[in-house]
Amino acid sequence: MDGKDASPRGSTAQRIEAELLEDIAAGQIEAGARLDETKLAARFGVSRTPVREALSRLAAQGVLESGDRRGMRVAQYTREELAQMFEAMHEIEALCARLAAQRLTLLARSEIEAAQAECTRTARDGDLPGYLRANEAFHLSLYRATENPYIFDIASDFRRRTGPFRAKKFAATGDLIASAQSHEELLAKIFSADSNIAAEGMREHMTASFMRVLAAN
Rank of each mutant, 00 (worst) to 15 (best):
E19S: 13
N196C: 10
F191Q: 10
L95T: 02
L82C: 05
E185V: 11
T105V: 12
R52L: 11
S47L: 04
M211P: 04
V74F: 00
R57K: 05
A41H: 03
R34W: 04
T49R: 15
H90A: 01
A115Y: 13
D36R: 01
L106N: 14
A42S: 03
S156V: 10
H139E: 04
A115W: 12
L21V: 00
G45R: 00
S179R: 11
K4E: 15
Y131L: 05
D153M: 12
F152P: 02
D68E: 13
A180T: 10
R203I: 07
L106D: 15
I197T: 14
A6C: 11
T122Y: 11
R203K: 14
S7Q: 07
E37N: 13
V51Y: 07
D5Y: 11
S209M: 10
S56F: 07
L64E: 07
D157E: 10
S179F: 09
T120F: 10
T49K: 15
Q181S: 13
R79W: 01
L95V: 03
F191N: 09
T38P: 00
L64G: 07
E111N: 15
D2V: 14
A13E: 06
A167T: 07
A59H: 08
T162N: 04
R124W: 02
A137T: 14
D23R: 13
A115F: 14
A42D: 08
K169V: 15
A83I: 03
F44K: 00
R103C: 11
D36W: 02
R43S: 04
D23S: 11
R103I: 13
A75C: 02
